[in-house]
Simulated assay, not measured.
Amino acid sequence: MDTNTLQAFIAVAESRSFSKAADHLYLTQSAISKRIALLEDQLSSKLFDRIGRTVSLTEAGAALLPRAKDILLQLDDAKRAIGNLNAGDVIGGLSLAASHHISLHRLPPYLKQFSHECPKVELDLQFAESEVAYEGVLKGDFELALITLSPAPDPSIHSDLIWDDLLMYVVAKDHPLAQAEKIKLEELTHYNAILPGSNTFTRSLVETLFFQHALTLNVTMSTNYLDTIRMMVNIGLGWSLLPQSLVGDDLKTLNVIDSEPVHRNLGIIYHKNRTLSNAANHLVQMLKSQR
């Protein structure tokens, strides 16, 4: 049993396809099949059932999957720990995920500074929704993630608050609510709301607020891209809560008198059981020093 066979096993298990696993690992399907056959021979157990084009884990495969992931994570952790012995060297790879909003509106100056200070680091930056990036850190796919922090984080996740994001109630200037000097939350429920998807951390904050006031949101459209929400609000399709940094003169900010200020926390997360590389530590400390 080696890392190559375990990587092949995990790729097939997660994609439920030998061909997709081969594409993911840049191998032939034959090579993937040979690695799975070798692993099954070593364990004396069948790991996959193949019925037509459907590939599913057997009981033995399901038992192996979390352990295989843990083995690979432990090996990666050992490599980082040894690499960190050269405390002055900030080299190697850094897998980082960032939400779309942070990538566009928060990250660029810090990314520029990091690239200048750590030119030998090979940065693998992926843009993803906060919830996807969060799961990626939990699974070990990313060393770090810059996201909207979860209001109820997993005990395995370490979070550092970097930015306090104040959200503003906004409508288009020709919206029926735009002329009101002050309104109440209950009035908002009579109009269309445009908010991120129901499975997002940001949506959870808004729903909790309205639930505490015994009110039901009237969400008619949703997207996880805040810049798209801004556009839809601007053309009069509904009201929303947007970061203050996205609110310009073309939108009307509402004075909602019975709503406490709505803040969402933006920050950096990593797995508590993962030894951070020197590159990851450098980025974490750089961001924390800017608060």
Results as ranks from 00 to 15, higher is better:
D2W: 00
N4I: 10
T5W: 12
L6H: 05
F9L: 06
I10E: 04
A22K: 08
L27M: 14
Q29M: 12
S33D: 03
K34T: 10
A37M: 11
S45C: 11
I51H: 03
T54I: 04
T54R: 05
V55D: 00
D70V: 10
I71V: 13
Q74V: 10
L75S: 04
D77L: 09
K79C: 06
R80T: 07
I82G: 04
G83V: 03
N86F: 06
G93D: 13
G93P: 04
A97E: 05
A98F: 00
H101W: 07
R106F: 09
P108C: 12
P109C: 06
E117I: 01
E117D: 13
C118N: 15
Q126H: 14
E129V: 11
V132F: 08
G136S: 07
L138Q: 10
F142V: 01
F142H: 01
F142T: 00
L146A: 10
L146Y: 05
L149G: 09
S156T: 11
I157K: 05
H158G: 06
L166G: 01
M168V: 04
V170S: 02
V171N: 05
A172C: 14
D174V: 02
I183G: 04
I183E: 12
L185K: 07
L188E: 05
L188F: 01
P196Y: 02
P196F: 00
T200K: 03
R203M: 06
R203T: 05
S204K: 06
L205Q: 07
T208R: 08
F211K: 11
Q212N: 14
T220H: 13
M221T: 08
S222I: 08
Y225D: 15
Y225T: 12
D227K: 04
I235F: 07
G236E: 10
L237W: 11
P243G: 14
S245A: 14
G248E: 03
G248R: 05
K252C: 12
L254Y: 01
V256R: 07
V256Y: 15
I257E: 15
S259T: 02
E260S: 09
P261N: 06
L266I: 14
G267V: 11
Y270Q: 15
N278T: 06
H282E: 15
M286Y: 06
L287V: 13
